[in-house]
């Protein structure tokens, strides 16, 4: 898939990804208009379906709110690439089916507005604007299956079905 990079810094916390004042909702369509509102209020206006967020270290730190990856996905971002993720955001993203890739080199080699090509199956990230190709760290064994099945609820349903 191909899209444009929206670049942000280190420690993008879940309070700026989706402020608590909107978190009475769990619906993507209600959360999406406020995605990243307190960090960059132009993001929602500028982002197109299939674009990417590229960020520094510890993306998604702070509150455990599941609304954060739901808001990002709902706004149209197809993947978040970061140098590292806060662990609960990482788990939330896997669980709700927001693709995430951990790849510091790709982050260093990408600027705001660059066109990227991403292959989620291989973890390959290519910067079409300024060149450069990187491979993101693979998910731990066992976690890949949750992603492939579209998130935790589908995974557990399938597993419970198989046990019966």
């Amino acid at each position: 898939m191909e899209g444009t990079a929206f670049k942000y810094g280190n420690n993008v916390d879940t309070d700026v990804i989706i402020p608590a004042r909107y978190c009475t909702s769990f619906l993507a369509e209600e959360l999406a208009p406020h995605a990243l509102e307190d960090l960059d209020d132009t993001f929602v206006k500028r982002v197109n379906q299939g674009d990417f967020i590229v960020a520094g270290r510890n993306f998604g730190c702070g509150s455990s709110r599941e609304n954060a990856p739901i808001a990002i996905k709902g706004a149209g971002a197809a993947c978040v690439i970061a140098e590292s993720f806060a662990r609960i955001f990482y788990r939330n993203s896997i669980n709700i089916g927001l693709p995430i890739l951990e790849c510091p080199e790709a982050v260093h080699g990408t600027e705001e507005g660059d066109k990227l090509h991403i292959n989620l199956e291989t973890g390959e990230i290519e910067n079409l604007t300024r060149g450069g190709k990187w491979i993101a760290a693979p998910f731990p064994e066992g976690i890949q299956e949750i992603i492939e099945l579209g998130g935790l609820v589908s995974y557990v349903k399938k597993r419970l079905g198989a046990e019966k």
Partner: peptide, 12 residues
């Protein structure tokens, strides 16, 4: 952990 994970703990 996440909300979905507590739901899964409830179930499994």
């Amino acid at each position: 952990v996440t909300r979905s994970e507590t739901a899964v703990i409830m179930a499994t």
